[in-house]
Design a protein around this nucleic acid. Structure first.
Length: 467
DNA sequence: TTTTGAGTTGTTCGA
DNA sequence: GTCGAACAACTCAAA
């Protein structure tokens, strides 16, 4: 048997069902396709990460005299052409979640069939099957807690598959038409605090389980300590499988409360996948349809200041600069920064989602859309709209000594713990109330209390406009 | 079918 | 400083 293994968001050898099946049956041609048509919002940081990850995957495959074949363009066109060229009988892959993914799979299956090649999709690369979670229900789940409770009792976590003992190459496929060098002409990019690739993912998991899982439930919300797993970029590119993580989690002897909390966070990722599977339009449109008429502002200057981390609200700015600088942001800060954009500045969640897609190493369409919709208030399971974060209070509560803010806002390092989240009052307030030496740090872009009231008014108008 | 309790992550205000 | 209520209702899930 001669097969193609089509690597999608699963750049690893372990617990990779398509790869294991194909490797058992004979020679394998490993293929990856950069396909720009597959994302509503273009990724940026994730693409840079992925190039590094592909180099790692290629290196692993070379142990067996195999290698990764990388292409750019239309996935179905390339895979069909290559399958014919190397006389493959089957193409193996995981199923994708987005509407584009599924349309592509249908197209590919037709194209391959015409060439006498079979497409073998081995299910979703998730913990719980996003499609089956709704079986027997009249509609997909809308609330996280019952969804998660149901999945945990309905689906036993699958045991992760070991990496195949060998992945034999096809007999001398040579260089194929259109094939690119893996990692060609890529300058070395530093990923602050991360090591892309399967080996990096595995050691990150190990470190997390050993160093940070105990105490995770109570400390995860403090970005200055940041005992979070930081596995998200690895998960987004599939360098480690969620089943592997859960398996190792269950073996851990950390307190139950901490293991449960982490499993819940992974559960949110599953819930997003479930939502996206049944609502493919949610990447760009509100899940609550009446929100289509929400009045967003087109405050370009405010949006730019938010992106650049100079809104004058330290907790938000530190987050946005962490994002620019490292391609990652702590979860608590993501919520606060997102809330500030959508509620205090009144900019649409889609604008924010697009920026996150471009800048996050861990960009995941399902998570990104579901989380932004949750913050904005238009998700199925969204926060009540009046529950608006006060980003200064959030900073004082979750970064009480300003460790996090100082790390990313060097101009504020000299301020006291008491001042660090309120470095400047607005200039309308008396000079006596302003702190000294903000080193050019801007004054707040908006008054938090006024913009909060404005957000509540927008929301009330939206409600009033619905029959 | 009806009823009931609940829904990730909050803030403000007034006693 | 601390505490409870108010903030909106609504829809979902389960009994």
């Amino acid at each position: 048997m001669r097969s193609i293994v089509w690597f999608r968001h699963n750049l690893r050898l372990s617990d990779n069902r398509p790869l294991s099946l194909a490797a058992k049956e004979g020679g394998v041609l490993p293929v990856y396709v950069h396909d720009p048509t597959l994302s509503l919002f273009p990724d940026g940081a994730r693409q840079r990460w992925r190039k590094r990850s592909l180099v790692e995957l290629d290196r692993s495959l070379r142990v067996w005299g195999n290698r990764l074949h990388v292409f750019s363009g239309s996935s179905s066109e390339i895979l069909s052409r290559v399958a014919v060229r190397v006389r493959a009988e089957k193409v193996y892959a995981f199923r994708g979640l987005t509407g584009e993914d599924r349309a592509l799979e249908e197209r590919l299956e037709r194209d391959l069939m015409n060439a006498g090649v079979g497409l073998h999709l081995t299910g979703f690369d998730t913990l719980y099957p996003p499609d089956l979670a709704a079986e027997g229900r009249s509609s997909p789940w809308k609330i996280f807690t019952p969804y998660h409770r149901f999945c945990r009792q309905a689906f036993l976590p699958e045991l992760p598959l070991p990496a195949p003992s060998r992945v034999d190459p096809l007999p001398s496929p040579g260089r194929l038409e259109g094939e690119e060098n893996v990692g060609e002409a890529e300058e070395v990019v530093a990923f602050v605090g991360f090591e892309p690739g399967e080996a990096g993912a595995t050691s990150r998991l190990q470190e997390f389980l050993e160093d940070s899982l105990t105490g995770y439930a109570s400390r995860r919300d403090f970005p200055g300590e940041a005992p979070t797993s930081r596995l998200s970029p690895h998960l987004a590119s599939g360098e480690i499988s969620v089943r592997e993580i859960v398996h190792r989690l269950q073996e851990s002897n950390a307190p139950r409360k901490d293991r449960e909390k982490f499993l819940e966070e992974l559960g949110w990722r599953e819930f997003s996948a479930h939502l996206l599977f049944f609502h493919p339009e949610m990447l760009g449109e509100p899940l609550k349809k009446e929100w289509a008429t929400m009045e967003w502002t087109s405050d370009e200057a405010g949006f730019l200041a938010w992106r650049e981390g100079r809104t004058g609200v330290p907790f938000v700015d530190a987050g946005m600069r962490e994002l620019s600088k490292t391609g990652w942001m702590h979860n608590r800060v993501r919520m606060v920064a997102a809330s500030f954009l959508v509620k205090n500045l009144g900019v649409s969640w889609q604008s924010g989602a697009r920026w996150f897609a471009e800048t996050l190493l861990d960009y995941d369409p399902a998570n990104n859309a579901a989380s932004w919709q949750w913050v904005a208030g238009c998700g199925t399971d969204a926060a009540p709209f009046f529950r608006i974060f006060n980003p200064v209070l959030q900073g004082q509560r979750y970064d009480p000594h300003g460790d996090y803010v100082r790390r990313f806002l060097p101009e504020l390092t000299a301020l006291s713990d008491a001042d660090i989240h309120v470095p400047r009052k607005r200039s309308s307030s008396p000079a006596s109330e302003r702190s000294a030496s903000p080193n050019g740090y801007p004054e707040p872009l908006v008054d938090l209390s006024e913009s909060r009231e404005a957000a509540l008014r927008r929301y009330r108008r939206l409600r009033a406009s619905v029959p």
